[in-house]
C-alpha cells in the first residue's frame, strides 16, 4: 500500500471516529466505543515494545496500574488537580518502565525470560499495592470524590455530571485524543531511524549490533514509550471510573488485554491494535447479544470466544487481521505481494 493510500485511509478512519457520536446516540454504544478505544490504546502501548521491538511483555499492567494509581493517589492524598497529576502519572509509568527495562535488557533477558520478569514485576507491584496500606489504601482501593457541580466538570476531569455534551461524550473524546496521540507517536516512530533500528533488533539482535545499533538503548527507548502510552490509559481509567484497587491495577487482566488486541489485529503495525480491539469487542458484544437471546446471560462467554479467536489467528493469520486486509487490498489493486511487516512466527 502506498504512503498516500495509507494516509488517506487514516484520515477517513479518524474522521469516522471523530464523527461517530453523531451516529451513535445510545449511551450503551458510546460506552462500548470508549471501552474499545481504551483497549486499542492499551494495545498500542504493548505493540510498541512487543510488536515492533519483539520483546513480549506479560506484565503491562505494571505500567497501566502505576499510571492509574499515581493519578488517583495524588488527587486523593494531596488534593492536586487531575490535570497536574496526569503528567506525574505518565512520568511514573515511564520511570517504572525504564527500571524494568534497564534490569532486563542489561542482563540480556529475551523471549520467555523477559515475559516472566515483567509478569513477576507486575505481581510484585500487585502485592505491594495491597500491603503498603499507608500509601495505597491497600485492598480497599482508592475512591475519588465525585464532583456533582456541572461547572467544575472540566477542572475536575469528571464528565459524569457535566453539561449535556460533556456528560454524553466527554470521556469518548478523552480516550479518542489519547488514542490519536498514541497512534501519532507510533506512526512517527515507524518513520524514524529509531523505529527502523527497533524492528532490526526484533528481527535479529546480533545482526543489528554488528550494524552499529545499540540494542540496549533502542529497547530501553521502546519500553519507555510503551510505558508512557500504557500509563496514559491508566490515567483515563482512573478519571472514568474514579476508583482503582490492586486487582484492577496490577492484576493479570490488563496485561492480557494489552496483548490480545495487537496480536489479533497485527503485530508491529500502527493500525493493528485498533483493528484488533474493534474486532474483539465487536465480536464479544455480538456474542452476548445473540446468545443472550436464546440462552441466559453467561458472564465470561466473550473471554472464551477471545481465546478461540486468538488460537485461530495464531494458527492461520500470523500477520493478524491487518495482514488479511493488506492481502485483500493487494488482490483488489493487483499489486505484487511485498515483504511482511509483522513478525511471522508470532
Amino acid at each position: 500500500m502506498s504512503e498516500q493510500t495509507r494516509i488517506a485511509g487514516w484520515t477517513v478512519l479518524l474522521a469516522l471516529l471523530v464523527l461517530a457520536p453523531l451516529a451513535i446516540t445510545s449511551g450503551r454504544w458510546i460506552e462500548f466505543m470508549e471501552l474499545t478505544l481504551f483497549v486499542a490504546v492499551l494495545g498500542q502501548g504493548w505493540n510498541i515494545l512487543g510488536g515492533f521491538g519483539g520483546q513480549y511483555s506479560f506484565g503491562h499492567a505494571l505500567f497501566f496500574g502505576t499510571g492509574a494509581y499515581i493519578q488517583a493517589l495524588l488527587q486523593f492524598k494531596l488534593g492536586w488537580s487531575p490535570w497536574a497529576t496526569l503528567w506525574f502519572a505518565i512520568a511514573g509509568g515511564v520511570l517504572v518502565g525504564a527500571f524494568v527495562g534497564y534490569l532486563s535488557f542489561r542482563y540480556g533477558l529475551r523471549g520467555s525470560y523477559f515475559a516472566l520478569i515483567t509478569l513477576a514485576f507486575a505481581e510484585a507491584f500487585h502485592v505491594l499495592s495491597r500491603s503498603l496500606v499507608a500509601v495505597t489504601e491497600g485492598g480497599r482501593g482508592v475512591a475519588l470524590d465525585l464532583n456533582l457541580d456541572p461547572d467544575r466538570a472540566l477542572t475536575t476531569f469528571q464528565f459524569n455530571f457535566g453539561g449535556d455534551f460533556l456528560k454524553a461524550y466527554g470521556f469518548y473524546y478523552t480516550i479518542l485524543v489519547i488514542l490519536m496521540l498514541a497512534y501519532a507517536a507510533t506512526w512517527w516512530m515507524e518513520h524514524t531511524r529509531f523505529g527502523a533500528q527497533l524492528v532490526a533488533v526484533r528481527e535479529n539482535e546480533d545482526a543489528a549490533e554488528a550494524l552499529g545499533i545499540d540494542a540496549f538503548r533502542v529497547k530501553l527507548g521502546a519500553i519507555c514509550l510503551s510505558a508512557a502510552i500504557t500509563a496514559a490509559a491508566g490515567v483515563y481509567y482512573t478519571q472514568k471510573f474514579l476508583f482503582i484497587d490492586p486487582g484492577i491495577a496490577y492484576g493479570p487482566t490488563k496485561s492480557v488485554e494489552a496483548l490480545f488486541a495487537p496480536i489479533i489485529g497485527g503485530l508491529g503495525t500502527v493500525l493493528g491494535p485498533l483493528v484488533g480491539a474493534l474486532f474483539l469487542h465487536g465480536l464479544g458484544e455480538f456474542a452476548k447479544e445473540t446468545i443472550g437471546l436464546v440462552w441466559e446471560d453467561r458472564p465470561g462467554l466473550d473471554l472464551i470466544l477471545f481465546g478461540v479467536v486468538l488460537i485461530l489467528v495464531l494458527a492461520f493469520l500470523p500477520r493478524g487481521l491487518v495482514g488479511l486486509l493488506d492481502l485483500a487490498w493487494r488482490r483488489l489493486s493487483g499489486a505484487a505481494p511485498a515483504a511482511r511487516k509483522g513478525k511471522a512466527d508470532a
Binding site: V199, A200, N204, A207, A210, A338, A339, A344
Partner: peptide, 12 residues
C-alpha cells in the same frame, strides 16, 4: 558479516 547469514528476514 556472519558465516551463517543473519538477514532481517521479514524486511525487504
Amino acid at each position: 558479516t556472519f558465516q551463517v547469514v543473519q538477514p532481517f528476514a521479514n524486511l525487504t
